[in-house]
Nucleic acid binder design. Structure first.
Lengths: 123, 123
DNA sequence: TCCTTGTATAATAAAATGCTTGTATAATTG
DNA sequence: CAATTATACAAGCATTTTATTATACAAGGA
């Protein structure tokens, strides 16, 4: 299952968000997800398996508990995949300036950064 | 269909990459996809419909042709969604420095930027 | 040892996805 | 106007995904 397919499911995205905050015991994840999605423990466990198998999460056994933690590598890959499209929303500036402007835009601006009329970026 | 589900399909990712390069006539997209995936014109048309409906592509009618172009908004949203995970692979530096380091890491470093042992980021 | 707790796995049903073939529609050309 | 070209839509089917229920299994406590 490719990274995007993994991220396609809202339950899995929720789990990843929880893991981004801190590592969690399987039971805690079940609780969070059940509270918001109302699905069974088995269903959550299956999502956790997908996250493990696809490299988004790691498990550590602690007696009869399983502690899940985030592995951000696949997310980084998604981020890298997006690189080829960034020119569409990043201002087209010089090397260093681009680096600076980039993060700023992304964190603050919610409205469109008015780049090109989206025909395609100037490069 | 959510943005990640849309991106989950390799044919659709391929189409988006083609559109990132330049706008294209439907027929050209069909040709590209058929060359690489060997699926029918109808199948490609269905993927194009999904891209339209989910906001990733726009169409312009040109006589009996349809010209597709990229709409990067949904991709930007994915990029923004990733923000909450960036601390895992971005060095934890001061405001401005972070902006600078960020793009650099992402474009050059292929090996892991050895941040935390991924427990979770410091800040 | 037996029960409880925490978690995973198996079987299966239901829903969603992606493809195919066939056809409709619109504009273009002979 | 009939034929052709470019593209979309519809129905049907196979595959995949996600959930359910039932069960297994390991660790710890009574």
């Amino acid at each position: 299952m490719n990274a995007f397919d993994v991220l396609g499911d809202p339950v899995r995205r929720r789990i990843l968000m929880a893991l981004a905050e801190s590592e969690r015991r399987s039971g805690d994840i079940v609780e969070i997800v059940q509270g918001e999605f109302g699905i069974s423990q088995a269903a959550v466990s299956q999502h956790l398996k997908i996250l493990r198998d696809s490299g988004f999460a790691r498990v550590k056994v602690d007696e009869q508990r399983r502690i899940y933690s985030l592995d951000s590598r696949p997310l980084q890959e998604v981020d890298e995949w997006l690189d080829r499209f960034r020119a569409f929303w990043e201002p087209k500036l010089g090397a260093l300036d681009t680096e600076i402007a980039r993060g700023k835009k992304m964190r603050q601006t919610k409205g469109q950064p008015e780049g090109q009329p989206e025909g395609q970026p100037k490069a």
